[in-house]
Computed example of a mutant assay.
Amino acid sequence: MITDVEWATFVPSALLLAATPGANQLLTLRNGLRHGLAPAVSASLGRFSAFALMVIAVAAGLGAVLAASEVAFNVIKWCGVAYLLWLGARTVLAAVRGQVAGEMQKTADEGDGKGVRGGLSSWRLGWQEFLVAATNPKALILFAVFLPQFLPRGAKDVAVPLLVLGAAYIRIEFCCACGYAALGSRLQSMGISLRARRWLDALTGVAMLGLAGWLATENH
């Protein structure tokens, strides 16, 4: 069954989907810019924990239940909107007030991978990634719609192939997340001005606010 999966079509499609900037990828870029490569990559594991739960849910048939339940969809949707609004506004305000500049100056002094102090700070970054992913009902429905397209027609036992496809997608998006984290870390190490760093952080926050608005206006 797994060998019947349309891998030649799945891999480029998944790569395009994973590389497209979204809330989590922007968050990883911001974490790379503010804290360095290692903390940003580590924090992204929170996102993939949420994705793994979604893939399991889709394999168990819960994705179809969410797609059919307007109440459940809207509850998760508005939680996601609220969290993205809060995170985006907080990021913009931090940039405007100059807090980002101070934080990144400390990061530059400490070196790559040391900008996040202590397990609690690392946990918070990972928790942010988890919440952004988990409170987006479109992500779960995307898995429910996207993954089955690459299964052979008429397949009856689809749980295992869906889990395999989900794991493959998570690997692909992890590689893309590493790219976003590396880009943020590279911008940090290039010695760009504090003002430019603040602008980049502010733009990330604005993008998150825009994504919140898009999610709010999307119909089920």
Rank of each mutant, 00 (worst) to 15 (best):
P148A: 01
V132F: 01
T28Q: 01
C79I: 15
L16Q: 09
S121I: 04
L194D: 13
L87E: 05
S193Y: 05
E110C: 06
I141W: 01
A212R: 00
A139D: 04
E70P: 15
L26C: 06
S189A: 14
G179C: 10
G98E: 04
A202V: 11
Q188K: 12
E173H: 05
A177Y: 03
L84N: 03
V158Y: 01
A182W: 08
N136S: 05
L53W: 04
A196N: 13
N24F: 04
A72Y: 09
Q99G: 12
R186Q: 07
V160F: 15
G205R: 02
E173N: 14
F143N: 02
T3Q: 11
L211R: 02
R117T: 14
N219W: 10
V160G: 00
L85R: 08
A155V: 15
A40P: 01
A181V: 06
L151S: 03
R117D: 04
R30Q: 12
G61R: 06
V92D: 02
K156E: 13
V55C: 02
P152L: 03
N24A: 07
L200N: 03
T28C: 09
G22T: 01
W214S: 05
D112M: 11
R30P: 01
W86P: 00
A23Y: 00
I170C: 04
A82E: 11
S69I: 12
Q188H: 14
A202F: 10
S122N: 12
F143D: 03
A82H: 06
I56V: 15
A40F: 02
L211M: 15
V206T: 08
